[in-house]
Nucleic acid binder design. Sequence first.
DNA 1: AATTATACCTTGCAATACAAGGTAATATTG
DNA 2: CAATATTACCTTGTATTGCAAGGTATAATT
Lengths: 109, 109
Amino acid sequence: MDIEKWKLQSRKGLIELLLLNLINQKKSIYGLEIIEFLAEAGLDLSEGTLYPLLTRLTKEGTLKPKWVTENTSGHPRKYYELTAAGKNALHSMNDHWQQMIVVFDSVKG
Amino acid sequence: MDIEKWKLQSRKGLIELLLLNLINQKKSIYGLEIIEFLAEAGLDLSEGTLYPLLTRLTKEGTLKPKWVTENTSGHPRKYYELTAAGKNALHSMNDHWQQMIVVFDSVKG
DNA sequence: AATTATACCTTGCAATACAAGGTAATATTG
DNA sequence: CAATATTACCTTGTATTGCAAGGTATAATT
């Protein structure tokens, strides 16, 4: 059995939950900063995964982006924050996640 | 944002982990019994999800099925057990899962 | 003989993670 | 002052899975 394939699949959806919780914690954060933070936390997230996800969440009204040009950096950065709807969504997702943990405990006997 | 869509996606891969842990706990269990158990634990799993998954895991050498005809039931039942390779795989998966919990805690900070 | 109950299986669609490759703005170097 | 490097964001195509819907099979009951 291919564990790597499973690892890939188990990330689906979960990454979205991790991302929203991170943005909620940081209040405001930009793309590469997210990748750096998660890498240090032990999760390698590629740009090809992150950027389409940020775009989708923005279109869905979960995130609100803001372009910022800073002195410390070259290219402008796109900072993301949760919208009010995004905070509600995150709350529902965390609730659902807690339920999954309960199911998890029951199968672990 | 569509929470239901997220719920669907977040199940990917995770269901495989739950299933293998359940079979490990029960030692031997058949299809509809799995669905019943998980339903009581709060997780609705459809047959269209379960059976293809059991078939794949058998092909991959993770599970070993055994047909059993019992007095108490009409149609014969196909009982599944973990193979030795399956137990190793489950161990790796649970390890990886623990790492994800750690990442999770760091974003909830 | 027909119906019901239990149980397993298959097909086609929708959705996401990611490798690979691309674009853009600014800073640095020869 | 070009050329290169750095930082940052974006797009396309592929592989994989969850599941609704519909199907098949065995045995008991009516």
